[in-house]
Amino acid sequence: MSVTTERPPASPAVQSTKAGPSHRAGQRSGRRVAAGVLLVLATVVTFWQVDLRRHAEEQFLALTRGVNAGAVISDGDVRVVRVANPSGLALISADRRDEVVGRTAAVPLAAGSLVVSSQVGPPAWPAAGQAVIAVPVKAGRAPAALAAGTRVVVLVGPPAAAQQAGGTPTADQPAAGARRALATVVSAGAGEQAGGQVVGLLLAAQEAEAVASASGDVSLVQLGPGQ
Rank of each mutant, 00 (worst) to 15 (best):
D75E: 10
A131C: 12
G226A: 14
G195F: 05
R32Y: 13
G129K: 04
G149H: 06
G129R: 09
S113Q: 13
G36P: 02
V3L: 14
E6W: 07
V115R: 03
L63I: 05
A110Q: 10
V221D: 01
A105R: 03
L38E: 01
Q197Y: 09
V100R: 08
S117C: 00
H55S: 14
S74Q: 12
R79N: 04
L220D: 01
T184H: 07
A210L: 06
V3I: 14
R54Y: 09
T184D: 12
G36Y: 09
S113P: 05
G200N: 03
A69H: 06
H55K: 12
V40G: 06
G140A: 11
A13S: 11
A162N: 07
L220P: 06
V44E: 04
P159H: 13
P9C: 04
V156G: 02
A147D: 07
A110W: 07
D75K: 08
T170L: 01
S11D: 08
A194D: 07
A84I: 13
S215W: 02
V198M: 04
S74W: 01
V120Y: 02
A178D: 06
V154N: 01
R96G: 01
G66F: 03
A145P: 00
Q164K: 14
S87R: 14
G177L: 05
T17A: 15
A13Q: 05
V100N: 03
E207H: 11
N68D: 15
T184Q: 15
L61I: 00
A178S: 12
E6K: 10
S16E: 09
V137R: 00
A106C: 06
A188F: 02
G224C: 02
F47T: 01
Q206R: 14
Q193G: 09
V44I: 15
D217K: 06
V72E: 13
L220W: 10
R82D: 10
A190G: 06
T184P: 00
G20S: 09
A128E: 13
D217S: 11
V33M: 14
G70K: 03
V120K: 01
P143F: 05
T184K: 05
T64C: 00
L182Q: 14
R179A: 05
A62V: 14
Q119P: 07
P143H: 03
L39G: 12
V116Q: 14
G88P: 12
Q206M: 05
W48F: 04
L201N: 00
L220K: 00
A171L: 12
S11T: 15
V132H: 08
G121L: 06
P12F: 09
E192D: 14
P8A: 15
L220I: 12
Q164G: 07
V132C: 03
A171F: 11
L201F: 06
S215C: 05
A19Y: 05
A139D: 08
V67I: 04
A110M: 11
A139Q: 15
V221K: 06
D172L: 06
V81W: 09
A181R: 01
S113A: 13
T43N: 03
E207N: 13
G177Y: 14
G76I: 03
Q59E: 15
Q130P: 03
